[in-house]
Design a protein around this nucleic acid. Sequence first.
DNA 1: CACTTGTTATAGTTGAGATAGAACAAGTAA
DNA 2: TTACTTGTTCTATCTCAACTATAACAAGTG
Lengths: 118, 118
Amino acid sequence: MLWRIDPAGDDALYAQLVAQVHLAVARGELAAGDRLPAARELAGSLDLNVHTVLKAYQRLRDEGLIELRRGRGAVVTARAEADLPPVERALAALVRAARAANLSAETTAVLVREAMNR
Amino acid sequence: MLWRIDPAGDDALYAQLVAQVHLAVARGELAAGDRLPAARELAGSLDLNVHTVLKAYQRLRDEGLIELRRGRGAVVTARAEADLPPVERALAALVRAARAANLSAETTAVLVREAMNR
DNA sequence: CACTTGTTATAGTTGAGATAGAACAAGTAA
DNA sequence: TTACTTGTTCTATCTCAACTATAACAAGTG
């Protein structure tokens, strides 16, 4: 998969990594059983610290998207292949509406989090 | 309107204020021409600093949701009433899809922020 | 005019994020 | 077994956005 990380962006680096994996799974670029690069390797190629990558991996594990095993690495779970395409479509629609309303990324994200917690 | 701020939440306080106003407008609790509390007053009742409230008000102004005038305060614009309902609909659709896919509020929020910044 | 309210400036505190280096533990593979 | 891979844990440091605190200033209200 392709990794696009923006060190100058508003999002935390580890959060960008997490989102990239979600996108890749939603697009079918990552399937259950596929393996992510080793943390040290990915950190090296993206010029990030190992801990930053591991924080992303650990969050992905907490979300049930991947499994982590020493010696084996990070493997995409079957659960991850759940209906993410519908999420992608809804996401695109929201982005369009939010842009039309001139909302910032931060504001839109907060609106989503509050709506989810309701 | 009702203000629900969580100092221990993941979101910045000013961002929560911004989201609250969006929700109030979308729900019809705030209409064009309505006035928000004075910054010093709201800060006092919510036990926040004036600058935190003002940062929220200024972001709302940047988004075209309110107008700010010295001596008069913060007034909801007509544009706010027109642009927010579509956002609310898209928001509801996303929440449904995200719940169906078992995504957490945090994950969904990050996905939105990433999608907005692309 | 007195008063309200947003604007601007300066400064200190706090916590999350990121970096760095090192040792440790569990699994893989020859 | 042995060598290697890879995640886990720990300590420490640095930076920056968010928040707080005070205070003066400017524009509009009544």
